[in-house]
Nucleic acid binder design. Structure first.
Lengths: 353, 353
DNA sequence: TTGTACGCGTTATCAA
DNA sequence: TTGATAACGCGTACAA
């Protein structure tokens, strides 16, 4: 049961049932464990003989030693893990954000711990576990439905929290893309095509992204001296878009719609279809967020692409910054939204080819 | 929530912004830390006075104590974390699998650590980190591109590994859905509609799911005494489907296609469009994997739904089983594939309404 | 140039 | 009924 016994047994048999530890490496290299540790961590105050260093490195190689994350986490009070809480991983919007965050985290030597939850309750539970059990050094929150209040509370705690794609008043750091400019760009495209009766199928009321996109839409319409018609959705999925699209279509004169996201846009397209309106000849459509789903839709959807992968990367960067001791700040990504012209939006008088 | 209270309650050597520890609870309840631990973990050998137990629980409540995952992990040599390695989180196929796995893991008191990677190299790196650093108790591998050999090696190590949606020869546990029956069901639907010249747009050659789906397709065609035409894709995305669809369309007499997954199906539809073939009047389409994207496509896609969320849950269950000491086994989910009839497949002579 | 000793927060075992 | 103590694997002052 003693340490020595286990160690020698391992050396003798080369048994693999336990991961090699610092002590195993030290024994093999015939040095003290602390030397191994300092060699591995590049301790600058360590003056070690070249031969000794070599023996250590050889032993590390030979045993395939990797420092244990739990032990290190306990000692350093740091986990090298970042929590990411989001409503659903499956969506074409969150996918790129996750990918960007994951990539940046990996570069920085962190792992991403995913905490998703379908309802607000389980999402909240996901928070509690990740943070209070000390499983992560900080948290990225991309869930739009969690109360601002709760996030502020979390942020006031021991670990930094970054709001992803939403702004929160108070001292919580946040990263967003320029939704407002994106919305304006989309609307201006419709205006430039000659549309005058444009409706906006928005997201759920009061959500931050909903508001910012609606602002952009209304600003563009106001600048053109036009009346802005807005129909709120109740979710960010296709069925919600379908319902909102149906409602918006009751307004006879609407010739174009700007939809707040890509999945609702599919719903709007379906609603138009079912109402006997063809796209783009009877109804032009532009939506926010580019994705393969939009590109391969029939007709291919004209969209405004936002830098989502960069959003994920920037969120991790900001969290790392806070972990380094910097005060929270709110950043908006500098990359401008870009219009991706395809075939769902055309001039109101033009008919399909 | 109870920060002020906790701060003042913390008696001895404690910086204020540290999480409360077992010792803090013990001090407040005026018992030994080991008693707190045993009360919390329901040690059956512990006979404790009711009043004492109450004091402990009150202290836990008051301090908002949560056991530290790192310390516990170190002591127990267990992390309550499961790694999930996959190619991309964004796809409509992996989304439900992740959701199912996440839900089941949460139920069992585990957290999911996501390790995704775009190329095989970074995926491999994700393995190495998660496993060898002892960050997870076991691994779920859903990445189709990782070498069987590598997975077998991993599985031979200290932590169990489960292959998700792919079978691997040897002693690795695996969970799959019945892709073959699904493919057969889809093909039989096309046959029942009266199609005789049916092509299969498959996945990348040699991948396990590709083979199983192709088997189902070929079995159905063989049973009908028909020649099976197969065009391999080179990925599971829409562009790959487009290219394969183009190739398949060169065969003039093909009146229907069975596509191995939903994103490639969008590509096939686009290829048909660009070739002047209308769906379903000129070409019927059925694909594997139901998803909102298929439901809201134009035309709505007839699909065969596979129990993907269940796949995620079952994968976690199987891993838990192995963690409990059971030998590896290969399971196929019992839920049968179900045909979701929509409007992309119709009788070859019928024209669009 | 290298070794010693201690503690991070937790649980298991034994002692009282 | 409860308390004391020894690890788990690692990093780091400090001693040699």
């Amino acid at each position: 049961v003693t340490r020595a016994k286990r160690g020698s047994a391992r050396l003798a048999a080369g048994s693999r049932d336990q991961a090699p530890t610092l002590r195993d490496v030290a024994a093999l290299a015939q040095v003290n464990p602390s030397v191994v540790s300092r060699v591995l961590n590049g301790d600058p105050t360590l003056r070690v003989a070249v031969a000794t260093r070599q023996r250590v490195m050889d032993a590390v190689q030979g045993l395939g030693y990797r420092p244990n994350a739990m032990a290190r986490g306990l000692r350093m009070a740091t986990t090298s893990a970042i929590g990411f809480v989001l409503p659903e991983a499956a969506s074409p919007v969150y996918g790129p954000i996750i990918a960007g965050a994951e990539a940046r985290a990996a570069e920085a030597g962190y792992v991403l711990v995913l905490g998703s939850g379908t309802d607000a309750l389980s999402t909240e539970a996901a928070f509690a576990r990740l943070l209070s059990e000390g499983r992560v050094d900080g948290l990225l929150v991309a869930s739009g439905t969690v109360e601002d209040e709760l996030i502020r509370d979390l942020s006031a705690g021991r670990h930094p929290v970054i709001a992803v794609n939403r702004r929160i008043r108070g001292t919580v750091g946040s990263v967003v893309v320029d939704d407002e400019s994106g919305a304006r760009l989309a609307t201006e495209h419709l205006l430039a095509l000659g549309h005058r009766h444009i409706a906006h199928v928005a997201g759920p009321p009061l959500m931050d992204t909903t508001v910012r996109r609606q602002n952009g839409f209304e600003a563009a319409m106001r600048a053109a001296g036009l009346k802005a018609r807005v129909v709120a959705g109740d979710a960010w999925d296709a069925p919600s878009g379908y319902r909102a699209g149906e409602a918006a279509l009751r307004e006879e004169r609407v010739t174009a719609m700007f939809v707040a996201s890509v999945m609702p846009a599919l719903g709007v397209a379906a609603a138009a279809r079912d109402a006997g309106r063809r796209i783009p000849s009877d109804l032009s459509l532009v939506c926010l967020h580019d994705s393969p789903v939009a590109a391969y839709f029939d007709p291919p959807l004209t969209t405004v692409a936002l830098p989502l992968e960069e959003l994920g990367r920037a969120a991790v960067d900001l969290l790392l910054e806070r972990l380094g001791g910097s005060p929270p700040r709110d950043v908006m990504l500098p990359q401008p939204p870009v219009l991706v012209e395809r075939r769902s939006a055309t001039s109101p008088r033009a008919k399909a080819p």
